[in-house]
Design a protein around this nucleic acid. Sequence first.
DNA 1: AAGTGGTCTAGACCACGCA
DNA 2: GCGTGGTCTAGACCACTTA
Lengths: 258, 258
Amino acid sequence: MSNTGKRALYQRIADQLRADIVAGKLGPGSRLPTEAEISKAWETSRTTAVQGLRVLVNEGLIVSDRPRGYFVRRREPMIYRPQKEFRAPAPDLDIFRQRVADEGDDREAAQTIEVVIVAPSTEIRDRLQVADGEHVAVRRRTRTLDGEPYNIQDSHVPLRIVQGTEWMNPGDVARGTNQVLAELGHEIVQALDEISIRMPTPDEATRLLLGPGTPVAEHIATTYAEGGRPVQVTINVLPGDRHVIIYERARQQQWGSS
Amino acid sequence: MSNTGKRALYQRIADQLRADIVAGKLGPGSRLPTEAEISKAWETSRTTAVQGLRVLVNEGLIVSDRPRGYFVRRREPMIYRPQKEFRAPAPDLDIFRQRVADEGDDREAAQTIEVVIVAPSTEIRDRLQVADGEHVAVRRRTRTLDGEPYNIQDSHVPLRIVQGTEWMNPGDVARGTNQVLAELGHEIVQALDEISIRMPTPDEATRLLLGPGTPVAEHIATTYAEGGRPVQVTINVLPGDRHVIIYERARQQQWGSS
DNA sequence: AAGTGGTCTAGACCACGCA
DNA sequence: GCGTGGTCTAGACCACTTA
């Protein structure tokens, strides 16, 4: 094999296929050439063809569905809104109206809930400001849509606050767990959202059925009661191919992206 | 090679190394065993060792610094706040105070700006609600910190709004471009933030010097003037290994993550 | 039974940074 | 020069799905 350019052959194979995909010549769901076809067309070994395909897999552009072949991936993100029921007069958001309305419409939402008591990790302890030996209660939720895992949500509260209360009930709480906390004297008045972007851990990849090349957002919501007292830390893990995170901002706040 | 378990050998190699990294046995910056050492230790071919290492590269856990070897990656994310100068009484955020204070402190920030006129993409046209043949002005910024690329920001405005104004000056506008827009009769009163998570395009990977296994957040901020009229669409591309996105929410809004 | 991708072998030559 | 990772070859056997 002669190196016609500086770029490696497997890179050029990937470039070619990627170009076909972004140009629409290979639309979502299309089947790609097989490894054998590619290696023949480029007069190279199958290993190199595989390497080229793997580039696109790691970019999240294609998936392999063995033994049927490689296919162009579909993306159908759902709306994720840390600010629920935002009441400011909404600007003209036709694009989203549609998709928001779709949420939970024809798709069947479900969730599994378990509640456990654990020693908090450093991340949780820092944000919850609990003492060193103090334990926390955790509501672990895995949400599914049409049977497909959708996201993971783990809420952490100091154990002393919720021990023996409805918060620890491992099932739905119709009026919402924040309402329960409010009734317990911990009404939430403020929150901090931190959103990090990273590749999933193998454990997350398993729980969320993530293919290679699928990054996740880790959304850590820390909620505070009056006086800046932290009440709850919720960690949400959102597969990048299934979510768009939406925030709305109104006049009383300042404008970024100047 | 006998398949001792179901899991492929290269997977088990990756598992072992990953465990060493998350356990801290291999701290940030540590050098990993060489490909040759791994293949010898596991009694396999170098190809399989490479395959195992590539798993971790694609997870963003390690980088190869040829020809020095593989190294455990460092993560030092900066704070990114779409809500700037948030004025609500801040909760106790010691963790972040530190890092926010660091911003632009000992590190040298710089940016390159260019302004061009283009036919808008569908994404832009939908959000900006411009007519079909109408053109838009784009301020393209690449921000660097200590000479390292940090993020990309492209602001789009209908051309008719800013033609011949200071907005199109390809340099700093001391009082901010939003102020310029306000003076032109387009004061911003509302905004919509959309955040998507994905792997970078090859072009973005080049511009931002992204290694493999580094996902990006695409933050699309659409700002609106009185009456829900869209004024500007800003697309920010944020490398996941260099940013944490922060939002604060206060009482007048509703609480998500219930 | 045929064809697919998943994994693996045992080599090879190369570019590059460092001593 | 030496050792590193980057790339590539020309095969091989396997598990799985579909015809």
